[in-house]
């Protein structure tokens, strides 16, 4: 019994210490939501966007002047809602979204991350907007579809 005890006593701590993980610091969260413009049968639809703004963001967001069928927007980590405004010539539309946030420590040796989740639409003046995926993750292909 004593020999077994001594053998395992030396081997086990060495094994367990060797299993100690080192952080890789690869981000696991994303703050980006993906909005797609589609036609009534669900195909991508190009729109001519002269500019795009997000309320309270200052001038951090670039102004577009391009034909696009989808747009990626970073959510505000210090708030739980944003209003996105789309300008097409003389027409403008908005989508008001809300979501939850919670800071996540991947490892203290890595940068802090914010986990966004439970995306929902509060209001819009587009004719048809659907939140097709409320989870906000790196794997999500599309969060919102705007039928235009």
């Amino acid at each position: 019994m004593r020999k077994i005890f001594l053998a395992t006593l030396i081997g086990l701590p060495a094994f367990l210490i060797s299993c100690n993980d080192q952080p890789t610091c690869i981000p696991e969260q994303t703050d980006l939501i993906k909005i797609a413009f589609i036609d009534i049968v669900g195909n991508p639809k190009n729109i001519i966007l002269t500019s795009l703004t997000v309320d309270n963001s200052g001038d951090s967001f670039p102004v577009f002047n391009d034909t696009i069928s989808n747009v990626i927007i970073p959510l505000n980590p210090l708030d739980s809602s944003i209003i996105i405004r789309f300008y097409q010539d003389t027409i403008s539309n908005y989508i008001a979204l809300s979501y939850t946030t919670i800071p996540v420590v991947l490892n203290p040796k890595c940068e802090l991350e914010m986990k966004f989740d439970f995306l929902k639409m509060d209001s819009t003046d587009f004719e048809d907007v659907d939140v097709v995926e409320s989870a906000i993750s790196l794997q999500t292909a599309r969060n919102i579809e705007v039928t235009h």
């Binding site: 980590p77 800071p103 420590v105 940068e111 802090l112 914010m114």
Partner: peptide, 14 residues
């Protein structure tokens, strides 16, 4: 307790 900085493409460093 937790403190740190969040870096975000559109909203800067907070």
């Amino acid at each position: 307790t937790l403190s740190g900085e969040l870096t975000n493409a559109g909203w800067g460093v907070n």
